[in-house]
Design a protein around this nucleic acid. Structure first.
Lengths: 330, 330
DNA sequence: AAGATGAAAGCAAACGTTTGCGAAAATGTT
DNA sequence: AACATTTTCGCAAACGTTTGCTTTCATCTT
């Protein structure tokens, strides 16, 4: 029922528990002969160390908490995959927690992390999160905390982000260079700094060009927001010839509206998105996008975590570069 | 660093550890006065019980393992959400593990579950999984195991599945009733029983109708498989007027091909899918689908888990009904 | 007033490991 | 042969809880 223990093995072999423990860990103090015997019996008895006991004793459970608004999201999924991959490599486990855009659940999740004495936490805050004191508690307990993607607007934390401004600039310039004159620009939640950075970069890119370019900026929180807003805008601005989508969710909504209007891409209208790459490949023609790679972000976040585990004091803000991936939509 | 402990509270208050422990649990043996004092200090000291110590002592860590091929999948995501929701309600945590269609990682994940002494496991096997002895170990240790969706073809296990045959029948009949005469039928991995059940139901539904209906069945493992195969078939069978998609992955691939061919839905060709509902809503016109709800599946699986935790012996095979959700694609 | 009752709290063992230190046995050194 | 050294192993405490049992008082009963 509860699995073999060191005690059982030690009894069966007439050894002490400590000897068995050391034998299994290949400790030099133990002779090859006993190591053999122990290994054998452990195997036939299907011995599996009790992770809880180990964590308790060593005060290190080799577990990371990963907190995201939702796992139904290819961006976070790829982030998680990257973290998971590296965790496996370094013999860590991860506990994935969703906060569903609800700060209360987010706090619950943090409590879970603390109660499980995780070795570190990767967190992407919800767009509703104003108060980050639950996160501060972690910091007080010296458990490394890496914010990623959606990060709080405060100093003194580790942050790993997409190069928000750069990515928006890249996308906007692509639209400009294809000669578009009237652009619908769809952004996400207005509360987030990630959104504002992108909006500003978008506007700046447009102002940097001599030619006069019309644009309309709107904010939408969901795919269906994006759909209805795009539909409206397409009706009100019949001359619109370009759509800028800040995220995959938005791209999906916008594309539905474009399909409904029966606009031809890229002849009638160009579409570009900041994206992880999955959704753009789903459409025909494939959507041109600026890659905001959750995978790369995850790799960077993990590397930073490892640094923190060694020397805990400093905090850093990192940025992941982005690249334009050409489809046929611009 | 390591958080407040009962010992610290007890010392500060001149009480014994056991008294503090009982006070925090509202045990009747403890007076209201001390309960107050303890609660207060615990709060100001930010006491959080050490989950590892509790699990070790009580041999019950209130943790479920959830093993899926991938979380980048709306079906599994919604399954996980359901399980998570109910787990939260019952004060359980879940450990989400991806096996990435790799039986080796799947086994690793199971080992993790065993080492963490989880209270139960929800598992969806990979399409490559032939050998289920790692799962058998769990059974031997009397930890409840619920297979869901993709389940092994053996007796004596708890299984919770979509009504595979029924869903395929429903979808096929919808195609038939709209008068389609030449159907492209796209299915997933041929190894899986889930696939075979659906194929058979599809064929049967077609044979049950008097009218002569052409069809072509193909198997595809990925979205891009579905895309290329659909493209080919659309070329070879210009008369094709219906597409049956066994899953969301397949739907996405097929739709790309349809968009490329510039076929009009539903005039030129009807499209129907077995789906969780997310992707069908992304297209215009919205795709008609038979709802194979991961959410409902999760709810059922959790309920079954709870039953197992009470009386461990029996095993059951359950089935979730499906319903047709009308879009404008048929 | 003496024993019985009950309320409130403490003792100590246990969960399964890890690990510093000491003990015993085997080997080496002169 | 006597001592020093090394190899091999065991003892026991600790990690932070929970819980059966005991102890200590204050309160009732008669």
């Amino acid at each position: 029922m509860t699995g073999t223990t060191l005690k059982e093995i030690s009894k069966a072999l007439g050894l002490s528990i400590s000897t068995v423990s050391r034998a299994l860990k290949n400790h030099p103090d133990i002779s090859e002969k006993t190591k053999q015997k122990v290994a054998e019996l452990a195997h036939t008895l299907d011995y599996e160390p009790n992770a809880n006991a180990i964590s308790l004793r060593t005060r290190n459970n080799r577990l990371f908490g990963v907190i995201v608004p939702s796992i139904s999201n290819f961006f976070y999924d790829s982030f998680i995959s990257a973290v998971e991959e590296d965790s496996r490599l370094h013999n860590y486990n991860i506990m994935i927690l969703q906060s569903g855009e609800n700060p209360l659940i987010e706090e619950e999740n943090l409590k879970l992390c603390r109660q499980n004495r995780v070795s570190g936490v990767f967190a992407c805050i919800t767009s509703q999160t104003k108060d980050i004191t639950p996160f501060v508690k972690l910091k007080e307990q010296k458990v490394p905390l890496i914010f990623f993607d959606k990060v709080p607007p405060f100093e003194g934390y580790n942050k790993v982000c997409i190069a928000d401004a750069e990515s928006a600039t890249l996308a906007t310039n692509a639209l400009i260079q294809s000669g578009r004159k009237s652009i619908i620009a769809l952004f996400g939640n207005e509360n987030l700094s990630i959104t504002n950075k992108r909006v500003n970069a978008f506007k700046e890119a447009i102002q940097n060009v001599e030619r006069r370019i019309n644009y309309q900026v709107v904010f939408c929180n969901t795919t269906s927001d994006a759909y209805t807003l795009t539909t409206d805008l397409l009706n009100n601005l019949p001359k619109a010839d370009g759509i800028f989508c800040m995220s995959d969710e938005i791209l999906c909504g916008a594309m539905k509206a474009v399909q409904q209007k029966n606009k031809s891409i890229p002849k009638d209208i160009a579409v570009i998105a900041l994206s992880n790459g999955f959704f753009p490949g789903l459409y025909f023609p494939e959507i041109t996008y600026v890659e905001t790679s959750g995978y790369k972000l995850g790799k960077a976040a993990f590397a930073r975590m490892l640094e923190c585990l060694e020397d805990n004091f400093e905090t850093k803000e990192l940025t992941i570069n982005t690249t334009l991936v050409k489809g046929q939509s611009v």
